[in-house]
Amino acid sequence: MQAIGQSAERQSFIDFVVAGRRYAVRVQELQDIIRHEEITRVPNAGAHVEGLIVYLGRIVPVLNLRGLFRLHGRERGSEGRIMVVRRLEQTAGLMIDDVKQVIAFAEIQPPPDSMRGVEGRYFTGVGMSAGEAVGLLKLDEVLIPERERIG
């Protein structure tokens, strides 16, 4: 947490990787990054649910963007970690493969209808970093997606 708190005029994001693709959340939304710990699977839950963990004495759901976005990229390594994010009163974990950096984008474009096959509603925008598109996650949608569209 020490290195990522520098406040800048521009919005700072945490840039991370899932299934070989880059995504980011606002630093204010990041609460913690923790090691892959014991996860309690929830039978019959949607593909976007990885399970439940105990974080700071509370049960917190852990979601998986692979399932939510139906990503078929590289399999995650054994070093998988959980990024704990908080949006309003909802705390949740996201399975991530790698954390890259704290990043500020010179330009943020509005989200396209579909970003590499993933619906645009999951993003607040797209940031460009060294010619690569970084999906800026809209946590309202990611954490509480409309059930019927997940199937």
């Binding site: 039978p43 019959n44 909802q90 954490l143």
Partner: peptide
């Protein structure tokens, strides 16, 4: 603790407890 909106419905599961 209910599963919450994040997890949604899971058939056979009413919630969780620590």
């Amino acid at each position: 603790k209910s599963l919450g909106d994040c997890v949604g419905r899971a058939q056979g599961i009413a919630g969780s407890t620590m």
